[in-house]
C-alpha cells in the first residue's frame, strides 16, 4: 500500500494527522507532491496538521449524534487550530441552513436536525405570544396580590396567534385532577376511570400516567374493580391495570395544591 493510501485511511479514521508526522522521511519535492495529492483528495493543511475539513468532520459527527453541546465541540473534532476557526465554521454552516443552534439541557447545542427545532419565525411568534401572555397575566393580578380570572376567549385568541387551538391551559396532571374534582363536585363519590378519560379528552395513557403520579403523591386513591361481570369491554380498555388487577375507580383523598 502506498504512503498516500495509508495516510488517507488514517485521516478518514482519525480526522487529522500532524504534518510533521505525515511528511517524516520525505525530501522537499516528495513532501510537496504528497501534500498536493492530499489536497486533490479533499484534505486540507493547516499550520500543524493535515485534516479532514472541519465542516465535513462536523457533519459526520452530527450524523452520529442528534446534538452536541457547543462547548464540547472542539473535543469531538480533530486538528482544530483555534476556537475562532471553529466558531467561523459553525456560523457558516448555520447560515447555509445545514446546522442549527438549539438551547437544551442547560446549554447551547448544535444539531443538523434542523426540522426538529423552531424556525426564527416560529421563535418570533412564540416571543410575541409570551409577551401577550405576560401582559394578560399581569392584568389578572391586583396590587393587593389577589387574583382575577381571564376570559377563556382572550386566552384562546392568544393561542390562535400561534396557529394552535388551546385544549387546556393547565399542565396534564393538573388537568386530570381538575376533571376528577369536577366529577366529585357533581356528586360522584368514586369516579369511574373510563368516565375521567372521556371527560379529559386526553389519551388514556396520559390520564393513567397522571393518576399513577397523583397516587404516588398521596393525592388520589386508585381502587380495584369490584363489579361482578358489569365492566363493559369498552370501559375495561380505558381502565388502569396493575398486573392482573383492573383499577376502575379513583377518588380524591387530598385536595390538590391551588395557585
Amino acid at each position: 500500500m502506498s504512503r498516500l493510501e495509508n495516510l488517507r485511511q488514517r485521516l478518514d479514521r482519525e480526522g487529522a494527522v500532524r504534518t510533521r508526522e505525515a511528511l517524516q522521511g520525505l525530501d522537499r519535492s516528495d513532501a510537496a507532491e504528497l501534500l498536493e495529492a492530499l489536497a486533490r483528495a479533499g484534505f486540507e493543511r493547516t499550520a500543524s496538521h493535515v485534516r479532514v475539513p472541519l465542516d465535513r468532520q462536523l457533519a459526520a459527527l452530527l450524523r452520529r449524534q442528534r446534538a452536541v453541546p457547543l462547548k464540547k465541540l472542539r473535543a469531538h473534532l480533530a486538528g482544530v487550530e483555534s476556537a475562532e476557526e471553529l466558531t467561523h465554521v459553525v456560523e457558516w454552516l448555520r447560515q447555509t441552513g445545514a446546522l442549527a443552534s438549539v438551547y437544551a439541557d442547560g446549554s447551547e447545542q448544535v444539531t443538523s436536525a434542523v426540522d426538529d427545532v423552531l424556525s426564527d419565525a416560529e421563535l418570533e411568534a412564540l416571543a410575541a405570544f409570551s409577551e401577550g401572555l405576560r401582559a394578560l397575566l399581569s392584568r389578572s393580578r391586583t396590587r393587593r396580590g389577589t387574583r382575577r380570572s381571564l376570559w377563556r376567549d382572550d386566552v384562546a385568541a392568544l393561542f390562535a396567534q400561534l396557529g394552535v387551538r388551546a385544549r387546556s391551559f393547565v399542565p396534564r396532571d393538573r388537568s386530570v385532577l381538575d376533571h376528577l374534582d369536577a366529577l366529585h363536585a357533581e356528586g360522584q363519590r368514586l369516579v369511574f376511570v373510563p368516565d375521567l378519560v372521556r371527560r379529559s379528552q386526553l389519551d388514556a395513557s396520559e390520564v393513567h400516567a397522571a393518576l399513577v403520579a397523583a397516587a404516588g403523591a398521596g393525592q388520589v386513591e386508585l381502587r380495584p374493580e369490584s363489579g361482578v361481570n358489569t365492566l363493559r369491554a369498552e370501559d375495561a380498555a380505558l381502565c388502569l391495570r396493575d398486573g392482573d388487577v383492573c383499577l376502575s375507580y379513583v377518588r380524591r383523598i387530598e385536595p390538590a395544591p391551588r395557585g
Binding site: 368514586l190 369511574f192 381502587r223 374493580e225 369490584s226 363489579g227 361482578v228 358489569t230 376502575s248 375507580y249
Partner: peptide
C-alpha cells in the same frame, strides 16, 4: 356493599 355493584347495579 361492593362499590362497583352499588354504583352500577
Amino acid at each position: 356493599a361492593l362499590d362497583g355493584e352499588w354504583e352500577r347495579r
